[in-house]
Design a protein around this nucleic acid. Structure first.
Lengths: 339, 339
DNA sequence: TGGTGATGTCGAAACGCTTCGACGATGCGT
DNA sequence: ACGCATCGTCGAAGCGTTTCGACATCACCA
């Protein structure tokens, strides 16, 4: 494979001039540049990424830290990862996957010290996340997908659960619903400090309370059966519920099935609105689910962009981006039917 | 950050000795080794991955080539990618994502020439795939996930569609079904030479013919509506169908809905078996789908393992691994009811 | 007891690039 | 016409490793 030396010889210039022609760090006359490019074409030259990295102290690699165990995001995760990878590529960077096992902090530290990545994208951030302290200490540029409890001064891109829940309620209340229940992720995820569970729960409580409506919320394991059980229990305790907000795909489908079994028609008797989900999943439901789709693509894009700006030192302010899920009205929500 | 030089000084040896202590390429006395390790601990030393790569001509990076447009695999893609990343990590490698846009060959060539990766994993391989020729010419070690029409001499790991379809038929025929229809991916995917569509279709035709059963197969776009339409058309043309094999998640759910609307109960009147799908998706169906789950995890693991062996030159034979989908019997298949 | 072959360590040369200081050759203002 | 800044190029010194040849040292066998 041709090296810069070969190009320099063929073009009759020094290596440094070739480098300048390539990077534009210093001016080069058009004629010299032309000769150099001709030589590069003739040799099929491509700069060696590793050598360049070593010399410039920039690898143009972004690491994506994701935990082995996958909680809520997983439905949108692929979308997010794809978008992050594509954005990175557009900006001249590469995305490297760093699956992290049990020893989160230790493994993360090792990886950082290898200096393979210019910056790190952290997925599945919990309210209190030790990886954040580690990254901060190690001076590595990083951006969170999600955010810790106190994220002041940190770059992050996260779902705007508050707005999402508010929009969800606006939609349902606009349709005349008042008895609205919320079916969330598992209690375990709440205890683990999983952001979406915590924040969506808080938002639901606040917005319902502000509107003077009763707060009915349940945690639910990620399975259809759990979804069924919750529905049974819910209607037993609150027979007057007319709408359901869910944030748990498996449970949503279980809930739909149980409602059908109980003779409750969706959306005639009960409206169902699934938040932080995806169109792909919504399309599998019959009737097709009204959802609020998680903005995986947007988060991937702005997370990467911001991280790159931070790496290149061109960043003005810290990124605090909150993107709400977008409402996609399909067939499972409709006006409340008066009895 | 500490370098090898710092370690060498602190331990009172030369850099090369430190290197030998680290890599074991040449012997080092236990005492020297101990002093070196002590120095490394004291300094919190970790070898710089880039420098190591440049000197050793091994980056320990594996590239995953995946096309922007995503066809069939996508449901299992996340599982596959996760598994590949984890396996790579276990073996001391990193997985780097290479999303490829329109200019497949050009972009792939550029990436290879940068010499960032020791080897390449190619996803979404078509029967006639120009990337394969490119990789072969460029001497880069690579492994296919999927395979071309003539894959002799190439390393690949793919779904064993023949066995999968046979097992699917064994299951259904064992239940007494004889009029079995196959609903596949879109005609477009067939024309594009998408392996799963082609191979599963051929397998279905062959196995049905061998058993003296009529071949009824349809292509179907990836949407619930298309699934509905195909079901309507199918029963119009072949009212005696008692079982459906599907390979198209969105269409499967549409088909289930249409069957319900037409008053055909699953599985009493019609058995439905969804192949190359995933338990995650199956769980969303009510009744829960009998599926044959795509072996994403296995393919990721053995693809990466084989690639690494090839990179390190320790590979004996070429990898020709075919993994069938595993049957997971749930609630949508049952014995044929005699009329 | 002298030659032989391991064994353990060192110094220096890569690996392919970026970047810094230096230095003619220009162009400019006065 | 003279100095001075700017432009374009060069050579050399890194970047932090690995790896190669060389060279003592030591044990061992003839």
């Amino acid at each position: 494979m041709a090296t810069m030396n070969d190009v320099a010889k063929l073009a009759g210039v020094s290596v440094s001039t070739v480098s300048y022609a390539l990077t534009g760090v210093r001016p080069v006359t058009p004629e010299t540049r032309a000769r150099i490019h001709a030589a590069m074409d003739e040799l099929g030259y491509q700069p060696n990424a590793i050598a360049r990295s070593l010399a410039s102290r920039r690898t143009h690699i972004i690491a994506l830290l994701f935990p082995g165990i996958e909680l809520g995001l997983s439905g949108t995760a692929l979308e997010f990862v794809t978008s992050a990878a594509e954005t990175a590529r557009e900006e001249g960077y590469h995305l490297m996957l760093w699956p992290i096992g049990d020893d989160e902090v230790g493994e993360t530290r090792n990886l950082i010290h290898q200096q393979l990545a210019d910056g790190v994208l952290v997925m599945e951030v919990r309210l209190d996340d030790p990886r954040v302290d580690l990254l901060r200490e190690s001076q590595t540029p990083f951006t969170l997908i999600g955010r810790t409890a106190d994220a002041a001064g940190l770059d992050y891109a996260d779902i705007d659960f508050d707005t999402t829940v508010r929009d969800a309620l606006d939609h349902l209340i606009g349709l005349g619903h008042e008895r609205i229940a919320f079916v969330s992720h598992s209690k375990a995820s709440l205890d683990a400090g999983y952001g979406p569970t915590v924040r969506a729960g808080e938002a639901f409580e606040r917005h319902m309370t502000e509107r003077g409506l009763p707060v009915v919320a349940r945690h639910c394991d990620e399975s259809a059966d759990a979804g069924r059980a919750v529905v049974s229990e819910l209607w037993h305790a609150h027979p007057d519920i007319t709408a359901l907000i869910t944030m748990n795909d498996a449970a949503t489908f279980g809930a739909m099935a149980q409602l059908a079994d109980d003779g409750r028609q969706v959306p005639r008797d009960v409206s169902v609105l699934s938040i932080a989900s995806s169109p792909r999943v919504a399309a599998l439901s019959h009737p097709r689910l009204t959802t609020m789709a998680a903005p995986g693509t947007e988060l991937g894009r702005s997370g990467v962009r911001s991280l790159i700006e931070r790496i290149e030192g061109s960043q003005s302010a810290t990124l605090h981006e909150l993107v709400p899920c977008r409402l996609d009205i399909q067939a499972t929500t409709s006006p409340r039917t008066k009895e």
